[in-house]
Structures are given as C-alpha cells and as structure tokens.
Design a protein around this nucleic acid. Structure first.
Lengths: 279, 279
DNA sequence: CCAATGATGTAGTTTTATTACAGAAAGGGA
DNA sequence: TCCCTTTCTGTAATAAAACTACATCATTGG
C-alpha cells in the first residue's frame, strides 16, 4: 500500500509536474497500466521525459518498471475475487479459493475502515473503567479472542457469550464502561436489544458489525465489517477474520497509546508465560 | 495463483518452444520481470517472436502486458512483508501494517500447507465418531470457533479450553474419535502432554501448530502454521488467523465430501437461524 | 511418402522509452 | 528589486524494445 499512499500524500515535496502525474496515477491507476509514457504525459499535461523522470525519481529503473510496481501494488490491494467453491473442486482448489477470498475480504475491510471512528473507539477503550465483549454464535469466539487480547491491559475486561449473562451485565453498566457488541449480520435480535439496553446506561456501545445494520444504528460507535452475503452454503466465513483483525488493531493501538512503560509490562507478561512452554 | 500454476502444469497442450518458455518463467519469475523479450528468448533458447506469440497466446496483449500480469501474480502470492510497528506510527499506518502482515501471514501459510496431510485430516474428521477441539490461551477462542463451524455437521463435536476438562476427555477417548490440538507455539507443556495422553487411546490426534514443534511430534497428523516468532511486543497475532482459515478449509472440505444431501441440511440450518434475525 | 497444417526463426518495421541539450521557472543573496 | 544559481521542463534526437511479415522447417494425417 506504500506506492499509492505515497503518491496520494499531498505534503510530500515534489515538483509541480510530478504532482500532476501523481494525481493522474492515483485517479486511475488501472488506466496507467495500459498506458505508454506518451499517453500518461498527455493526460497529466506534461512532457514524456517528465514522466520518465518521475519514475526514476521514485527509484524505479524507468516507466515500465514503475508500471510493474504499480501492478503489484494494485494486486496486493485487491486480491483476485474468487468465484464460489464448486462441489467438484479439488482440495488444492478449495484451499486456494478460501485463502484468496479471505485475503480479498481483508482488503475490502481495510478499504472501507473508518479511521476516525477507529480512533474514537480506541479513545473510548483507553478511558474505560471496564470493557465487556459480547458475541453470539460465530461471534462468540471473536468476543473470547478479544477478551484474551485485552487481558494484557490493566483495564478490567470480560467476555460474555450467553444472552442472559449479557443482559445482566448490560443492566449494570456505568457511563464510564465500554461494551463491544460483535455481530456479523448486525441483525440478531438479542444483540440489537443488548446494544439498546446498554446505551440507556450512557456508556460507550461499540459495534463491530455490518454498516447500516440495526446493530450499527443501536451503537454509539460502529466499526464496519463488510457483510458479503454468504449466500452459498460452502462460502467460508471470511468476515469473522476481518473482525479479529480489527480487534487486533484496537489492541495494538491501545498498547501504543500506553507508551514505553507499558511495553515493559507486556514484556513481563511474556516472561511469565515462559514457564508454561517447553525449552 | 492462476498464471504460475497454469504455466507449471505440464499436461497443458503447448508447443515445444512454449513449454521451454513456461519452464523459464516458472523457474525464475522475478527475473522475467526485469527481462526483455530478447533476454527471455535467449534463456529459453527460442527466438524473440516466439516469446511474443507465447504471451499473446495466453491472452495478453504482448510481452509487457504479460509481465504486468506476472508482477500482479507474484504480489498476490507474496504480499509485502511489513516491518514492525513503531511507537510513533499513525493510526493509518498501524492499520495498514496489521492488514498487510495478516495477508502476508496467510500467503506464507498457504505456501507451506501440506495438501496430503490436509486430506488425511479431512478423512479422519469425516470418519470420526466424535470430534474434540482443544486450545489454551489465544488458541482457546480458535477451538471454540472450530466447534461452532463443526456444529453444522452431524458428528458430535465439543471444544475444551480448560486443562482439567481436556485431560478428562482425552482419558476417555475411543480409537474412532478425533481430537484436534491447537497451539501457536506448539510448546505449551499442557498441550503437548494432552496430545501424548490422547495418542495412547489410539485415536487420531490432529495438531494445528508450528511445524517441528514438540506438539507436532506428539500428534498423529499435523498441519503446519508458520510460527513467525513475534519478538516485538506490538506484533499482531497473525498466526491465529491462519489457524482459523485452516479450520475453515477443513470444515469446507468436509461439507463438500458429504455431497448434495448435506447441502440441504446446511440450508435447513440456515433457515432455522432466520427467526433470530431482524427483517 | 507426400501434402497440409502449424510452429519457428530471420529480418525488417513500428512503437516506445530514454538521453542530451537548451530554455524556462523558481529560489536565494546582495 | 535584480541577478545569479539551482532546479525543473520541454523539444528533438537516439537507442531500445516489441511487434509484424514472410520464408523455412517440422510434424502429423492421409
């Protein structure tokens, strides 16, 4: 993601023409792949050698080399959208398709992740008196995973995967608490009701769910995880992976925010786990 | 993965020279990216126009277009290895790095996944009287997730994340049972001992763990998940994702093996979940 | 064994990328 | 503000690479 991000960055020092070319590339990267220096020069309103200098200036051997890097960049950003798994696929094909669709799903989630909302959630978690993770069905394991990740912090953390317990806890929330509701569809009755119940306490209700879903609307803060409508019975559950990665990001951002003193704490945690290991 | 796989496929009908070129490309794809038609022609021992015909024959506009596709292919296969997260990284940078390293980790796992072992595991699961998933710490949520995935099947399935309960269950295993031990490091004492205990019953002991680890050795079947030594405190836990994807693959392969009648069952499961949803 | 089809290579042509150089713009000091 | 220096930009020429046309060779089927 470095190339396109760098090109899109307006504060990088570049000559006037270089900016024009960068804008052209960012605006339509796919078109550049099939363009010649002359074509790109024309659409950027500069001369051909300027395009070449632009490429060499970025550290590439020339325009063709730059195009190769761009093609690689785009491929990384948008992995092949795998067609559905067929009943007569070989094991190798199934493996490849599941890996690819997972990678594609991750790419899609990254694309649509709202950084501002993410920062708000990190702030809410950082200032929380206690953190509760809730999930049902497939999202139950995500909630448990989140709890494990957040055990590293000093904030009291719990996960609940039972609707009775979830409601009990949600009833007693403090405005300084933070509850995280995890749901793939964002349409599970019990989860939406839980979020609504939790919101009455005035605490932060974070949703990690499908954008625009009832659950997302019931939350005070929502992080989008694209819901790619797994209509097929064999479709792998890629969105769960995206939820886990988002929780990983939250935990990492929180750890970074705590500063150097906290790194020592993490190292101590690691050290104390050492004795459970062989060698 | 289509391009290189296709080129490596020896049974595809191609002319003699085309085979020579394909072999050259597969042998050293990176080198081809910086080569000219003349260079590739020379190293394949054919003439320049043959290289061009080879490219157009594959459906590309010409040699440069082929190189772009190859670059994209290689990028997909081997996403950028992200350097560690730094204390002063922006939120956007952290997000990008975590996503990228997760994708890279997935790519690495796919690369080293043993398809034969995978098929053995699928067979073991398909014939199992009952399936037990065990994990501790971070792998506990993976075990729970696996249980959820396998609830769709008719085989009795359970997950245990408590060493006492795990040992109790492992003691009473039948040779027809299948226990799946999940561990990132493959070095957790309790897990290795559990696998050894389970193995005495004569049942299949599947490990989803680091290759060559004590746990992998204690299992009767092992699926490798690369252990990339997360030395840094801020390193995201990418291997957990790889474990989940492998379990997704196992569940999907199992579902495929059950045939069309089973698809109906899956559809019924889905239908019965409908009433828990809004709209 | 002889067509006939298809594949391959040589040589030439076109396209594309790069370099050299000159002119223009921008920045810095008096 | 002006002039000088530095950096950037475009024109034109050059070099390189890719592609095309055509002739030759191999291979297969009758």
């Amino acid at each position: 993601m470095t190339l396109l991000t760098d090109l899109a960055d307006p504060r990088s020092k570049r000559s006037k023409s270089a900016h024009k070319i960068a804008a052209c590339v960012v605006a339509n990267p796919e078109a550049v792949l099939s363009a010649t220096t002359a074509a790109l020069a024309a659409s950027a309103g500069v001369s051909e050698p300027t395009v070449n200098r632009f490429c060499t200036g970025l550290g590439y051997k020339g325009f063709p080399d730059f195009k190769l890097a761009l093609a690689a960049e785009l491929a990384r950003k948008q992995p092949r959208m795998t067609r559905n798994i067929e009943a007569n696929d070989s094991v190798g094909a199934v493996v490849a398709k599941i890996f690819e669709s997972t990678q594609a799903s991750l790419g899609g989630t990254l694309e649509q992740l709202d950084l501002a909302a993410l920062q708000d959630v990190v702030a809410a978690l950082a200032n929380a008196r206690s953190i509760i993770f809730c999930g049902l069905g497939a999202s139950a394991s995500v909630a448990i995973d989140a709890q494990h990740k957040f055990l590293r912090f000093h904030t009291p953390v719990a996960s609940h995967t039972d609707i009775i317990n979830q409601r009990m806890v949600a009833t007693g929330l403090d405005p300084q608490d933070c509850i995280v509701c995890i749901s793939y569809s964002g349409r599970t009755h019990a989860m939406v009701e839980l979020a609504e119940l939790a919101a009455t306490s005035g605490c932060h209700v974070v949703g990690i769910t499908a954008p625009g879903s009832p659950l997302a609307n019931a939350c005070t803060l929502a992080l989008s995880v694209e819901n790619d409508e797994d209509t097929d019975v064999y479709t792998p559950m890629t969105s769960r992976i995206a939820q886990l990665v988002i929780l990983d990001i939250l935990a990492t951002c929180l750890a970074l925010q705590q500063g150097e003193a906290f790194s020592d704490h993490l190292r101590r945690v690691k050290y104390n786990l050492r004795l459970t290991r062989r060698q």
